[in-house]
Simulated scan of single mutants.
Amino acid sequence: MTTDSTASWTAAFRSAVVSPHEAIDLFELRGFADQTLRQIIRLDGGGSALRIRLSNRYGKEPLHIGGAHLARRTEGSGIESGSGTPLRFGGAEEFTVPVGEEAISDPVERAVAAGDELALTLWLPDDTGLSTYSAVPLRTGYTVPGNALTAPTLDGTEGLEELATRHFISGADVLAPTGTRIAVAFGDSWFEGTGTTNDTDRRFPDLLNDRLHAAGSTGWVVNQGISANRLLTDEIGEHALARLDRDALDVPGVTHVLIHFGLNDLGIPGQEAYPEPAAVPTAADLIAGLTALADRIHAAGLTATVTTVGPYKDTIYEGYSTPEGVAVAREVNDWIRGADSPFDSYADFAAAVADPADPDRIHDDHDSGDGLHVNDAGAKALADSVDLAALKI
């Protein structure tokens, strides 16, 4: 396609991926063989052309794709008649993604807009092995036996399975006006959206995008949250300091990075060791890690916004909440709110959803039911806590 100096490739959708070969096993792991996989993505921003990213980062076998097809989604697994197009990678409709690598499609020259829902269908003729996946996409996926690459719908097909996890998709880019401002929501389940309603786009980044668009901003936020991800320790996913470059700093068009980390560093040690006690990081440990994130974001010429660690006292997950961990979260949050924080701005997630009578726990109105994650109303409170003037997107 022709190049345009007034437009550049910019992330319009992201789906942070994790390995199926980790020791901590919280989510359904699976592979595919002689199956069609149809998954839905919703764009956070628009442009004059589109390209899709597929990942075999954690696969142990080359990922053979017999065909890839992109179309506008109607409802369920249905696609709009006449909207479909084959995706080509290096000019080929059939291709292989090597072990440990990512593939970027050839550009599809069609205008797309924020909020567009696209169905990406993959025909997987060979055994993929356990797949590189996203844990909590909150978008139902669909798989059926055989080759149904261009089927108008998979609904009602014999052997249809609905999937709660997303597989092989790591993102979509659009050709957007050069200078478009993009924030990456880089964090854990409070960004990925655990606790909010499936298939409704009520996650924090979605609702922050609603605010940005209503305010007339031409920029947007893409979601690189990983549920159960940690700042300092691997699993689930590589820890934040290890994945910062790939999942934030190297995202095309990024100008801002939003951060929420610390909950799982404090909770997972006790949860994994329960009922035996386990040491949690100190406030100094977490502050050093957050400072390292801020320094690396600034060194890349980007703006860094941090959020306070969300409340989690009395969560239902045994061993997760401890008096020691809650005290550390409090200390880290005081630092985030104070003059010594190296971040450009902060959003006070903890204050936004806390129970005023017991600020270490989530208010009942904002609690998803597990005491650790917020519901749709809580996600809106998080989005409303962001000062758009300070964010500057």
Rank of each mutant, 00 (worst) to 15 (best):
S83I: 03
G45A: 10
K60S: 09
R72K: 13
S81V: 12
R73M: 02
E61S: 14
I79F: 01
L50H: 10
T36W: 00
L29G: 00
E75A: 14
G90E: 04
E80D: 13
S83C: 10
R73D: 03
R88D: 01
D106W: 01
R42I: 15
E109N: 10
V99Y: 00
S48C: 02
L43R: 03
D116H: 11
G78T: 06
L50K: 08
G47A: 10
L43M: 02
L118D: 10
R30A: 07
H69T: 04
S48E: 09
A68L: 04
R53T: 15
G90N: 09
R110Y: 03
A33V: 12
R57N: 06
R88I: 02
P62T: 11
V97F: 00
L50M: 05
I79T: 13
V99F: 00
L29F: 06
Q39D: 01
D44K: 15
S55F: 04
S77K: 08
A68Q: 07
L87M: 12
Y58W: 15
L70Y: 02
I40F: 00
I40N: 05
P107M: 05
E102Y: 03
G90F: 08
A119M: 15
G45R: 05
G115C: 04
L63N: 03
H64R: 14
E102D: 15
E61D: 12
E94I: 04
G66W: 02
A113D: 10
G67W: 08
D106C: 05
N56A: 13
R57S: 11
G90P: 07
G45H: 12
A49R: 14
Y58N: 07
D116K: 12
L29Y: 10
V97G: 02
F89G: 12
A113W: 01
G59V: 08
D106K: 02
V112G: 01
G46Y: 04
F32P: 05
G78I: 09
S81C: 01
L120K: 01
A33H: 13
L118V: 10
S83D: 07
L63Q: 04
E101K: 13
A119K: 05
G84I: 00
D34G: 09
L120V: 15
A103G: 06
R38P: 06
A113V: 14
D44M: 10
I104N: 00
E75N: 13
L43K: 03
P98E: 07
H64K: 15
A49P: 06
V97Y: 00
G31V: 06
D44C: 12
R88E: 11
A49Y: 10
L118T: 09
T36S: 08
S77W: 04
P107F: 02
S48M: 01
A49S: 13
R51K: 14
I104P: 00
E102S: 13
E75R: 15
L29S: 11
